[in-house]
Amino acid sequence: MLIFSVFKTLTDQQVTVELKNDLSITGVLKSVDQFLNIRLDSIKVLDEARHPHMMAVKNCFIRGSVVRYVQLPSEHVDTQLLEDATRRESLAAVKR
């Protein structure tokens, strides 16, 4: 739930999603759900020459399981808070 929570705060921010098929899509994060499925808007693929079929695509829905990395905009992530959140989560995990 932590990452879900983090992504929720990043809606309407520019993120880059790296997929497991080596496609890197930059776009505005519109929504994310608990499976970390991602909906991006006004997308742009990193290497357009290699993926010409993606040029016409303007928005997309990405199934969470095909995501390798998500590059977050650092200015919109509170690192200290993120640390705290992980601490809380690990605390909760220990409690269980």
Binding site: S5, V6, D78
Partner: peptide
């Protein structure tokens, strides 16, 4: 039922606090 948790605040800690800070 997937989203309902006994401690919603703790489970959504980051978003909650981030929102509060913002």
């Amino acid at each position: 039922s997937q989203l309902v948790t006994p401690d919603p605040y703790a489970d959504d800690f980051y978003a909650q606090v981030y929102g509060a800070i913002l």
